[in-house]
């Protein structure tokens, strides 16, 4: 198994090198003065439809979907729990089926509760 991950690791090296090639070419063009580099304050300001931006962008942003994020944690962990069950399912028989049904039913209660509490709406 570790050998297989090692093979994927070789691809990781290539995958990191892949975007570095055009970036490197771009940098090289800059070194050869083919690519212009004439910074000025207007160019280096952020784009806001041609106006001078008012205030900073990194503010305390109202994340209206934070309840989704909470639900996500619950459901994602639960889905990952189900993966080993799914792989071993054929060997386990009716017992595993019923048990998974109970597991999903418990989750479903939470799901319905969240729905009724309007957690799944953009506030």
């Amino acid at each position: 198994m570790i050998e297989q991950f090692g093979r994927a690791g070789f691809l990781l090296i290539f995958a990191v090198a892949f975007p570095l090639v055009p970036i490197g070419a771009s940098v090289a063009l800059g070194l050869f003065r083919i690519r212009p580099r004439k910074p000025d304050p207007i160019k280096q300001s952020v784009y806001e439809c041609g106006m001078v931006p008012v205030g900073d962008a990194l503010v305390r942003y109202n994340v209206r979907y934070y309840l989704f994020a909470l639900l996500f944690v619950v459901f994602d962990v639960e889905a990952i729990f189900l993966y080993p069950w799914a792989v071993a399912y054929r060997g386990l028989g009716v017992y595993a089926f019923v048990e998974a049904l109970i597991f999903i039913a418990i989750l479903l209660v939470g799901y319905v509760y969240a729905w009724r509490k309007r957690a799944m709406e953009w506030i």
């Binding site: 990781l12 290539f14 995958a15 970036i23 800059g30 280096q44 952020v46």
Partner: peptide, 28 residues
């Protein structure tokens, strides 16, 4: 490749530069 690379002064330089590379890697 020939175009001038503009980077806002207020941007977080390291994150700004690494993001396109990090975006490419998982897909490959």
């Amino acid at each position: 490749m020939q175009k001038e690379v503009l980077q806002p002064k207020v941007a977080d330089g390291l994150v700004f530069s690494l993001a396109p590379i990090a975006f490419t890697v998982p897909g490959i």
